[in-house]
């Protein structure tokens, strides 16, 4: 019996990856929840917008690298490219809003019409991304790969089990935390943030008190651009960039937003981690963990894997269904339109 080794295995294979993945999902889900509470529709183009923004970041990274500007071999160059990506996405999203969504706001179309329009935007964005960068996997991670590797950890601790912390994972967790704090500061402390919350709570009262709805919408898209590009870049640094993977993030991101409570920013963050930890925990083979935890000779002979990795969607979906049945408004009581 060796609980310490068990804990280290668990940290290495489940806790750290799930924490990083959860942070990426949480940033994505925050975007979905903001669009839902301000523009009042489910934004199906979210995954593809994310891919498009990340693509801009990748091209900028390559340009910076060939110009000799890098993160000094420590930090990934892509971090410096994020502002460029955000700026590009702000322009893209505002142009899309002007060309597509604004008209439907003016004619007060039903929410599902907005969803249809976002499907159109999804197709266009998806096509553009593939047109510009293709469908194959792109890796753009550079700088120091590990904060500490398995070998370094073993030498330092003298333990048999290894633990590694990749730079991309550490950066993801830290950056996500910073972005979330900044967002909450903005929403609770600034006038624009307060006007956004007012608009989301009660549109008519907000209009009555002189809040300009178009300005609120513009701010929302700017924040969404920042969230989406950050989340996409962090995901790409962590797992590599492929447009199809970003498209498939749509389901877990929506699940995170709904589980937490659509329209609730805190909920989106909690939902992101709930989805990520469940996905990882249920598809992880627990044999090694239990062979450390249980007394000698009682080690399990199976893989102790509840579901194969192919079924991670099923896990997401199961959480979603459980929440929909038992608490349709989500953990943090989001809104129900």
């Amino acid at each position: 019996m060796d609980p310490l080794s068990a804990l280290i295995t668990l940290t290495n294979f489940v806790l750290i990856p799930a924490f990083a993945y959860g942070s990426q999902l949480a940033l994505g889900a925050l975007g979905i929840t903001l669009i839902y509470s301000i523009l009042r529709f489910s934004h199906f183009a979210h995954g593809d917008i994310m891919a498009f923004g990340t693509m801009v970041v990748i091209y900028t990274t390559w340009a910076l690298q060939s110009a000799g500007i890098t993160g000094g071999g420590v930090l990934p160059t892509a971090l410096m490219a994020i502002p460029v990506g955000i700026a590009a996405m702000v322009v893209y999203l505002l142009v899309v809003d002007r060309l597509v969504y604004r008209y439907f706001r003016q004619v007060k179309a039903k929410p599902l019409i907005f969803v249809m329009a976002s499907l159109g935007v999804m197709f266009v964005t998806n096509g553009l991304t593939r047109l510009f960068i293709g469908t194959s996997e792109r890796r753009f991670e550079d700088g120091q790969r590990f904060i500490f590797s398995v070998r370094e950890f073993r030498e330092w601790s003298g333990l048999a089990e290894g633990l590694a912390l990749r730079s991309a994972q550490a950066i993801t967790i830290l950056a996500a935390l910073l972005v979330m704090l900044a967002l909450f500061w903005f929403l609770t402390r600034t006038k624009s943030g307060k006007s956004m919350r007012a608009y989301s709570d009660n549109e008519d009262l907000a209009l009555l008190s002189g809040i300009n709805p178009e300005r609120v919408v513009v701010i929302t898209w700017v924040i969404v651009a920042a969230l989406v590009v950050t989340a996409g870049t962090l995901y790409g640094l962590d797992k590599g960039f492929r447009p199809i993977n970003y498209f498939q993030l749509l389901l877990p991101m929506f699940a995170a937003a709904i589980v937490g409570g659509l329209g609730s920013p805190i909920g989106a963050i909690v939902g992101g981690y709930v989805v990520a930890f469940s996905e990882m925990g249920i598809t992880y083979a627990w044999r090694r963990f239990f062979s450390h935890m249980l007394p000698e000779g009682m080690a399990p002979d199976g893989m102790m894997q509840l579901l194969p990795v192919d079924y991670k969607f099923a896990v997401t979906f199961a959480i979603l269904v459980i929440v929909l049945i038992f608490r349709p408004t989500g953990i943090f009581r989001g809104k129900s339109i």
């Binding site: 597509v100 329009a117 998806n126 096509g127």
Partner: peptide, 9 residues
């Protein structure tokens, strides 16, 4: 893909 999106919009 682009064409389909534009047609839909």
């Amino acid at each position: 893909l682009l064409t389909m999106g534009v047609a839909l919009l």
